[in-house]
């Protein structure tokens, strides 16, 4: 007998798909052909977008949801889940993706924000959402809104792993530090974090987020993926890192291999051989604060 979707139960279904992506690599793709290359290389899902983050960064202008024709083409070309990005706060773009049957919606700082004060009320949707976070407070604010997966923001399109590492360490360090607190201290910590007390207490008792916690933003090599997995990420997103490299097919397979075998340095070594040039990287201290995508959203 099918159940009518109460909020708690529909949340369980959303988190269920996020669980299925664990240990996998989610790859940014801009065409059905790229999506097929990603799937053939072993991607656990693909993320449809118009331009990869490094091109958005280079070209400027307003970055919006991907065109429908591209998303539909990608849905036809692959059987792995298809994700797509919407602008922060743009719930109408999200409704369009939901109607299109997109499997996961990324409310993403990589696109130009549509609302500087409000994120999408994600509980109202049947589609699951993933959101970026730099620390535990931000992660829990997104989960409170209904996000079924959290990823680090990192610094998308930079080819520089430093921000993803910072955000992973921050979120996981914040979680570990809750373990030392008494109940009333958790309440004041919740206030400092700007997160609901109930969720803070839940995280303290679980010792982890109540949804999967993935890494994103700056992953360019197999060793970058292995580093994120070692720091507690449960899967990785790779944006510009694959299709802006010299040999996308080979690099995609290599990052998949390193994500499965992150605990085996010889395997990460094997995956790292003969890949050709990685994408060009950015030194982040040369970036103006206003150019940092991670500063979008709260």
């Amino acid at each position: 007998m099918s159940e009518n979707g109460s909020d708690a139960r529909s949340f369980e279904i959303k988190v269920g798909l996020a669980e299925m992506m664990k240990g996998g690599v989610i790859m940014d793709v801009t065409t059905p052909e790229e999506a097929k290359i990603a799937e053939d290389a072993g991607a656990a899902a693909v993320m449809a977008l118009e331009r990869v983050p490094s091109d958005i960064r280079r070209d400027g202008g307003v970055a919006r949801m991907c065109s429908i024709a591209v998303i539909e083409g990608i849905q036809k070309s692959v059987s792995v889940p298809v994700m797509a990005k919407v602008r922060i706060g743009h719930f109408s773009e999200a409704r369009v993706l939901e109607a299109l049957g997109v499997d996961f919606i990324d409310e993403s700082e990589v696109l130009t924000p549509a609302d500087e004060a409000h994120h999408v009320a994600k509980d109202d949707f049947r589609s699951p959402f993933v959101c970026g976070a730099r620390d535990l407070g931000e992660a829990l604010r997104r989960i409170a809104e209904g996000a079924a997966m959290i990823r680090t923001k990192g610094e998308a399109g930079s080819g520089n792993i430093v921000e993803a590492v910072r955000h992973l360490r921050q979120v996981n360090g914040d979680i570990r530090s809750l373990g030392a607190l008494r109940s009333e201290e958790l309440a004041s910590r919740a206030k400092e974090l700007g997160a609901p007390v109930g969720l803070v207490k839940k995280v303290a008792s679980l010792g982890k987020l109540p949804v999967p916690n993935f890494a994103a933003g700056g992953i360019a090599t197999p060793a970058d993926a292995a580093l994120c997995m070692s720091l507690g990420a449960e899967a990785v997103f790779v944006g510009s890192g694959i299709f802006k490299s010299a040999d996308p097919e080979k690099r995609a397979r290599a990052i998949v291999h390193a994500t499965t075998h992150w605990q085996e340095p010889e395997e990460v070594l094997n995956a790292s051989r003969g890949l050709g040039e990685a994408m060009e990287g950015l030194e982040l201290d040369k970036l103006d604060e206003s150019e940092r995508l991670a500063n979008r959203g709260w």
């Binding site: 159940e3 798909l17 996961f104 699951p128």
Partner: peptide
């Protein structure tokens, strides 16, 4: 038969017959 019920928006929970 893969994805026989549809995409993620068609995922569901149910009790056995």
């Amino acid at each position: 038969q893969r994805n026989a019920y549809g995409t993620q928006v068609d995922s569901f929970a149910a009790t056995v017959d």
